[in-house]
Amino acid sequence: MKIAFIGLGHMGSGMAANLVRAGHEVRAYDLSETALSQAMADGAIGAASLSEACEGVDAVVTMLPAGQHVLSVYGEVFGVAPKSAILIDCSTIDVESARQVAGQAEAAGYQMIDAPVSGGMAGAKAGTLTFMCGGTKTAFSGAEPILAKMGKAVIHAGEAGAGQAAKICNNMLLAITMIGTCEAFALAEKLGLKDQVFFDIASKASGQNWSMTSYCPVPGPVPASPANNDYQPGFAAALMLKDLSLAMQAAAQSDADTPLGAKAHALYEALCSQGHAAQDFSYMMERIRRGA
């Protein structure tokens, strides 16, 4: 297949490379020349413009920062990409923008799906992402074979915007469990328990959770976790704050009560304001240890 890939940041670069490895002709475009050069080194064909990337393709995949970027980019994609091309937005954006761009795509004669991801940079590079998809069954059927080359799980969540809803709810839960895990380790340390001992117990008891067993926020127990690499992401605290902000926006719009989500948002906002936005979100461990 001929696939246009727009947005080659930390996540998009690994995803595009996996599509190349799967045998697809990937036409890459990004405003960053450095990012575009890396994509070309990975085997993609560099495009000089968004329009050039989208001409004659079978699919368009985007990985962009926010809703306004998605709306702007697809405003250019419509009418350039063939009507037969499946449109797949893997960005994490607000639900309303996802529904708006899907409506515009339908009006322009395209099938489109929102397919935000979970798995971070490591998952993007390894091709082990989880895709949460919103759109019609027809659009999902068209997108699934492409997404499967970049991930371990591709799940249809419902109609347009449902993928974004699943993503922000999942990451709100992730933030809450990470903070709780950090608090538990910090208290265990103050009570004289070694990190490995507490891990060995809690990871096999009722406190077990993904933030502990797969992404442990203290060095030692899980060698692959960012805590063993000076908290280099991974999944940056700034990105977690972005997702929590989207969750809080959605909670306000839907009149949902999310007290722990609101507290998690406040804690990550403080962590980022203290100069740790670029570090992994599990750096919350250090903030809780300091108590400030």
Score class of each variant (00 low, 15 high):
residue 225 S to A: 15
residue 121 M to P: 15
residue 40 M to Q: 14
residue 137 K to R: 15
residue 207 G to E: 01
residue 143 A to H: 07
residue 162 A to E: 00
residue 84 S to W: 15
residue 193 L to P: 00
residue 252 A to Q: 14
residue 125 K to W: 13
residue 114 D to A: 02
residue 51 S to G: 15
residue 107 A to Y: 05
residue 114 D to H: 03
residue 8 L to K: 05
residue 26 V to W: 11
residue 215 Y to L: 08
residue 102 A to Y: 02
residue 64 L to D: 01
residue 159 E to W: 10
residue 179 I to T: 04
residue 49 S to V: 10
residue 75 G to K: 11
residue 190 K to A: 08
residue 83 K to C: 11
residue 222 V to D: 00
residue 68 Q to T: 12
residue 172 M to C: 10
residue 118 S to Y: 04
residue 21 R to D: 01
residue 19 L to K: 09
residue 262 A to W: 09
residue 230 D to H: 15
residue 196 Q to T: 10
residue 210 W to P: 06
residue 76 E to S: 13
residue 142 G to H: 00
residue 196 Q to W: 15
residue 113 I to A: 01
residue 50 L to T: 02
residue 8 L to S: 00
residue 146 I to A: 06
residue 227 A to S: 08
residue 268 Y to G: 01
residue 109 G to F: 09
residue 227 A to N: 03
residue 76 E to V: 12
residue 105 A to Y: 08
residue 111 Q to Y: 13
residue 152 K to H: 11
residue 285 M to Q: 13
residue 266 A to K: 14
residue 2 K to S: 10
residue 275 G to E: 05
residue 117 V to K: 03
residue 197 V to K: 10
residue 268 Y to F: 11
residue 201 I to R: 04
residue 113 I to R: 06
residue 9 G to A: 03
residue 267 L to C: 04
residue 134 G to K: 05
residue 147 L to H: 01
residue 30 D to Y: 07
residue 261 G to I: 02
residue 161 G to I: 03
residue 172 M to L: 13
residue 106 E to A: 15
residue 83 K to M: 12
residue 267 L to E: 00
residue 108 A to C: 06
residue 15 M to W: 03
residue 215 Y to N: 06
residue 278 A to W: 15
residue 281 F to I: 07
residue 69 H to L: 01
residue 209 N to R: 07
residue 169 C to E: 06
residue 273 S to T: 15
residue 7 G to H: 05
residue 123 G to F: 04
residue 49 S to R: 12
residue 207 G to V: 08
residue 250 A to W: 09
residue 148 A to N: 11
residue 251 A to W: 13
residue 71 L to P: 09
residue 56 G to C: 13
residue 38 Q to F: 15
residue 131 F to I: 09
residue 232 Q to L: 13
residue 252 A to V: 12
residue 87 L to T: 02
residue 275 G to M: 10
residue 201 I to S: 03
residue 142 G to T: 02
residue 94 D to F: 04
residue 201 I to N: 00
residue 13 S to D: 12
residue 217 P to D: 02
residue 108 A to P: 08
residue 128 T to F: 07
residue 114 D to N: 02
residue 28 A to K: 11
residue 41 A to T: 11
residue 122 A to D: 11
residue 2 K to E: 11
residue 228 N to C: 03
residue 174 L to H: 11
residue 242 K to G: 00
residue 81 A to E: 04
residue 75 G to S: 09
residue 263 K to P: 12
residue 33 E to N: 14
residue 215 Y to V: 05
residue 150 M to C: 11
residue 201 I to W: 08
residue 88 I to D: 00
residue 88 I to K: 04
residue 57 V to M: 09
residue 280 D to F: 08
residue 198 F to A: 03
residue 187 L to A: 08
residue 5 F to R: 03
residue 68 Q to K: 14
residue 32 S to V: 07
